[in-house]
Simulated scan of single mutants.
Amino acid sequence: MHFHFVALLYFRETVERGSIRQAAEALNVAASAINRQILKLEEQLGCDLFERVSGGMRLTGAGEVFHAYVLRHAQDFERTLSEIEDLRGIRRGHVTICCEEGFAKDFLPRVLRPFHQQFPRVTYKVDVAGLPAVVAAVEDGTADIGIGFEPDFDTDLRRAAEVHVELGAAMAHEHPLAGRANLHLSELVGEALILPDANYDIHDRLNKLMQGAGLKLSRIFETNSFEAMTSLIIAGLGIGLRTRVGISAEIARGEIAFVPIADRAFRSTQVVILTKARRAPPVAAALLCERMAAMFAALAEKKAPGAYGH
């Protein structure tokens, strides 16, 4: 069964707006045109998609099922349009990126600035989430590109690029340990620590390492936000165990000192760029992914300004 794209567009907008009138205003078309297309869909499907209620439109059970179908196929249609437009030389498109918090702060601006200058008609959506949500967004097609620390669980996603980044102790510049070339974890016993919570691989790795060594660290703060961790570190409330991702500007300004960890089992972690394995991304997303991979390679070789180290 085939459906006219305009009818699907009108249907989706009506669902999102809650009424034909508001959908018509948003799309700048006549309300009668939207109503006519919805009636055609209902006739084609042989069932009512909406209940006409006071003040708007409410999906029926069949309407809910059809709405899910429309959302799935809308993503594929928009990707197809992006590729066709690129082939026509229009150089436009849309890229959805889902990444962990630190990457949105310093990595994305560095890679997107030159890309946007070259392709000013490409638009973007950036979602910030924890690693499980990043992986899920790429798996279900909500995001074209995912960026995060190495997943500690199985996934069928393609690793478009990966790089090892240095783990270290981040602290206020006036901290007594700030001038050290490196630190062993055993030297942090008794120090007030600010740690990522169980949403992050660093948390589990640190727990296992400490248990194996018979050491106990003082966890003063645990947080699922690297931005919160950064603020707490600058305030002098403790030492954060993390990578340079998301704090390169603070390090450059002298607000934070970053001292690498010397323990072999906790020297680094891996950052990955994830894409769908069995489906080619839109042209704009594929090209952006290549640029990201090139920057990752430069970071790994410490050729880029503000490299994260490895």
Rank of each mutant, 00 (worst) to 15 (best):
G141H: 11
K125D: 13
G240M: 07
R88C: 12
L49D: 03
E64Q: 13
A104M: 12
I90A: 14
R158D: 08
R267V: 07
I256D: 03
M210E: 13
D140M: 08
E85K: 15
E166V: 04
M57Q: 14
A30N: 12
G240I: 07
I233C: 12
Y200P: 00
L177R: 01
A23Y: 08
D76H: 15
C289P: 09
H203P: 00
V122T: 06
S248M: 07
H203S: 09
A284M: 05
G102L: 08
G146E: 11
A172Y: 05
R36L: 08
V138F: 04
C289L: 02
A104Y: 04
Q117D: 11
L183P: 14
L232A: 06
G130S: 14
I234Q: 08
K105W: 02
R180H: 10
A265M: 11
R279Q: 14
D152M: 10
N182K: 07
R92T: 11
A213R: 15
V245A: 12
L232Y: 06
L193T: 10
K216Y: 08
H73A: 05
D263R: 07
E64L: 13
A136I: 02
R58A: 13
L8G: 09
E16V: 02
F50I: 02
L59D: 01
E139C: 00
R279E: 12
T230M: 12
T155W: 04
G309D: 06
E85W: 11
R52N: 12
I145D: 14
G168T: 03
V163T: 11
A307V: 08
M210F: 01
L81H: 06
F50V: 01
L71H: 02
V53P: 09
K125R: 15
D201Q: 12
